[in-house]
Each structure stands twice: as C-alpha cells, then as structure tokens.
Nucleic acid binder design. Structure first.
Lengths: 191, 191
DNA sequence: AGCCTAAAGCACAGTCCTTGCGTTAGCGGT
DNA sequence: ACCGCTAACGCAAGGACTGTGCTTTAGGCT
C-alpha cells in the first residue's frame, strides 16, 4: 500500500490530512520524535486515533509522509551564471540542509516507514529534478556537462552516504571537493 | 545510549544476548519482519520481555543490533591478482548481497534503530575495512591506486544510495561501470 | 435536491510497553 | 576456595497503545 495520500483538495479528508501533518510537525519540534505517539498526534490534530491508523497504518508511515513533504524543495536552484557554480552552490545548500539534525531525521523517517521504497524514490526524484534544472540551464547556455546520472553518482550519492553512515566532519568543503573532482579535478583514481 | 552490547563472554548476559539474537534471526526468516514483536522474540529466546526492553529499549534497536552483526563481512575479499579485478569482484558481490530483499532490510534496520548513528558507522567501517585490505594488497604488489575515501565516494556510496533510494534496475553491470569510471574510464564529467 | 460512497467517529477488546521489586548469577577480592 | 557485591534477569501489574466492527457524517455526483 502506498502511503502517499491522494485526497481531493477542499474535502474533509484534505482537512484531516493537513491538520494531522501540521500536528506531527509541531509535536516534532516541541517534544521530539521519541515522545510522538499516534494518540498524541490525533489529539493535537483533533481527530481520533483510529482515523490515523486507518489512513496511515503506522506512526512511521505517517512520519515518512510528513518527511517527504518536508524534503520537497520549495524553490528552484539559484542561477550563478555557469554550470560549475550552480552545482557547487546547490551541493553546498543540499548538504547543509541535510546535515542538520532535523534534516537527517527527516531522511531517516522517509526511508523508514516505506515498505515499497516509494517515498525514498520520491526523495531521489526531487534531487534529480533540481539537478535537471541546473543541467538544462547549462545546456541553454551552450555548456556541455555531465548527465543527471553522473551527477547523482558523483555528488548526491556520496553526500547522502556520508550523511546517513558517517555524519561526522561534513562541511561545505566536502561538497565543493566533490564538484571539483567531477569537473576533472585531479581525481586520485586510475592506475 | 549505545545499543551495542559489551558483555563478557561466557556470562549469563552473553547467553541471553546470543539466544535473543538467534531468536530474532529465526523469526525474521520464519514470519517476516512485520510479525515480530518483543514478546514473541522473548518467548522464542526463553527470556522475559522486560529483559529485552531493558537491554535494548526498543524492537528497532534490537533489530539494528542484529542487522549490524549480520552485515559484518565474514571473509576477506578475494584476491584476483590486480587491484582493478579485486575491486570489481568485491563491488559485484557487495551489490549482489545488499540488493537482495533481506540485504536491504538489514541495511534499513541498521540505519533505523540507531539514535546516534553508531551502528550505521559500523556498517560503513566494515566496507572501509574490506577496501583497505584490497588497497593494501595492491600496494604490496607495487600498484598505486586511489585511497579509501575515494573508493568509498566513487564505488560504495553510489551503490548504497541506489540500494536505498532507487532499488530498481540494479545489477552487476552497474558495479562494473563504477569501477571502470573510477579507473579513468571516459567519465562524462568535465566541461 | 437527493442518493451514495468514502472517510471519520466511537467504543471496546487485545496486546504491548514500562517500571518497581525481589532474586540470582558470576565477577573480584581476600 | 570462599564470600560479598553488583549488574542483570524474572515476575507481576498498571497504564498506554494498537487495531477492528459498527455507526454516523460529509461531500461528490447525477
């Protein structure tokens, strides 16, 4: 079962979903994730727990839904005039947002309550979308650069891997280094 | 609180931990993850639920512990005579193991019940260890290749990212391609 | 305007979580 | 080798959470 909700806007369902999502975000900030329970969220949202159980099934699936919504980029990547600057700026901002405690928590939540990998795929699609915008702009300028898959492999994947598995010592310099190495910086590879 | 157990071997604690871990692995295979509950594991392991709650706190932290134990490589990477072959073989095997349904489940469990990122770091350390063995062997042969961090960024991270976020269409060819590109294959990067 | 369906509320039963207290195993000291 | 001491386990009970059958309501559709 996909957890993403497809409710028509304006109806009661939409109101319930919105108020539940809001309740989750508020309670996450106020009391932290450990303190969250379905009944607590239900009370804050002004619904009964059974409503949440029926629509989301599990607290984790609900959290996953909220997380994906929160991880959706709300703005197009900034235009700095050339591909490399755009990628660098985007990577720095991405890493900065995702490295924060709440950012990591959202990523983990998105991965967590996600039986069929649907929500995780959505997160990846968001990043790919942003990168596509950057690459398309570069193509319009006449620059020719890597394709999306390469950027995902060389920039996004390493950042995400470290965020998830080795969160210590991550900073903007790492993001810049990845971009530099992608652009033919002296990669240490090769034999 | 770190969930990793530091019990002395031979004592009662060690016996309890072993029987609980075994119970988890057995029940995971028999009934699947959804059916797992703390009381169920406790019954199979021959302990009381409160013991599990006290030592692990949560089913997820327990699962995380078991997952990390299971993700530990039990054998040194094969020696194929040269660095590139070693890396390719290792990457193929790694991807194959991790792409399986149970492999992905273990990875997610390891990430999941892991408040301070301790278990996730351990997983990453396992991979780094294996790669270090491969690189050390290459150095002994007189080959000079990339350093560990580069291999983590270029091989491990992309595979893990796709396993977690885009599990569709992953195969050995992808692993080979990553190694090829690392070894100066025509990377599509650069402007 | 009225029907009809999907979703929410209500209530209750079953399970799980959590903790206080007593007991025990086994480590360390003499 | 014995004995005290501490950390860990078992037991039991209270409270909270999960999940479901049935009823009610909102709002889309003709």
């Amino acid at each position: 079962m996909s957890t993403r909700q497809r409710v028509r806007p304006g109806g009661r369902s939409a109101r319930v979903q919105a108020s539940v999502h809001t309740a989750v975000r508020e309670l996450l900030e106020e009391r932290g994730r450990e303190a969250l329970t379905v009944p607590l969220v239900a009370q804050r949202a002004g619904v009964t727990p059974s409503t949440i159980y029926r629509r989301w099934g599990t607290l984790q699936e609900l959290l996953s839904d909220v997380a994906v919504e929160r991880l959706r980029p709300d703005t197009a990547p900034e235009d700095h005039g050339d591909l490399r600057s755009d990628l660098t700026a985007w990577a720095e901002q991405f890493l900065d947002e995702m490295t924060s405690a709440s950012g990591r928590a959202y990523i983990r939540d998105a991965l967590l309550g996600d039986p069929d990998g649907d929500n995780a795929g959505q997160c990846s699609a968001y990043a790919a979308e942003q990168i596509n915008v950057i690459l398309a702009r570069a193509a319009d300028r006449g620059e020719h650069g890597p394709d999306v898959e390469t950027v995902m492999d060389r920039i996004v994947a390493p950042m995400m891997y470290r965020i998830l598995f080795r969160p210590a010592g991550l900073d903007a310099a790492y993001a810049r280094r990845l971009v530099t190495e992608l652009f033919g910086g002296r990669g240490k590879g090769g034999q």
